[in-house]
């Protein structure tokens, strides 16, 4: 079972994952699940009517717009990085937070390395399944490595051009 790090109010901690991540070919277990976008579109209504919490796993090549209508009902959006160099989900995370006003968990899964931590947090991710050996302390340190930032993103950090005017 992968390690899950959650960021909350500036703190990072290991979290128990109440969701089971289910591949498309696997039968659905009981309880809360994270399933693919395709499966969600086919079975989401039924699962939600059973009173479970449902998360959706979105692949890098999938259009995040396909999920917009259902976002209020989705507990987790798990954005899957096939390779850490694939940067499409940074845009998707920002769109979720800034354009679609999604307030649930945005989780980074797949090839997730601590070198990406700051970028991810700035784009609106708040949960991480690191593929390297980083724990909450390393992860938090990586998000705080830079005292300043130069642009606005999905976080609340003040960009240089605002800080300078104060």
């Amino acid at each position: 079972m992968p390690k899950l790090i959650k960021l909350h109010q500036g703190q990072a901690s290991l979290a128990n994952d109440r969701f089971t991540q289910v591949a498309d070919e696997e039968p659905l277990p009981g309880g809360d699940v994270i399933i693919s976008l395709t499966r969600f579109q086919a079975e989401g209504d039924r699962l939600l009517s059973e009173g479970r919490a449902v998360g959706v796993r979105v692949e890098a090549g999938e259009e995040i717009e396909g999920l917009v209508y259902d976002l209020p009902r989705v507990a987790v959006v798990a954005l899957a990085f096939p390779k850490f160099r694939d940067g499409r989900h940074y845009t998707n995370a920002r769109l979720l937070r800034e354009r679609f006003d999604y307030r649930g968990e945005v989780r980074a899964v797949g090839d997730v390395l601590r070198e990406q931590a700051m970028f991810m947090v700035r784009c609106g991710f708040d949960a991480f399944e690191p593929a390297d050996d980083s724990g909450p302390d390393e992860w938090l340190a990586a998000t705080r490595r830079f005292t300043h930032v130069y642009q606005r993103a999905a976080d609340t950090r003040e960009p240089a051009f605002v800080a300078r005017a104060e």
Binding site: G87, Y90, Q116, F119, R122, C123, Y150, A153, F161
Partner: peptide, 14 residues
Amino acid sequence: RQWSTLHPEFSFLP
């Protein structure tokens, strides 16, 4: 230069 420096969305472009 400033806007593009460690831009969080555009540090892993194609």
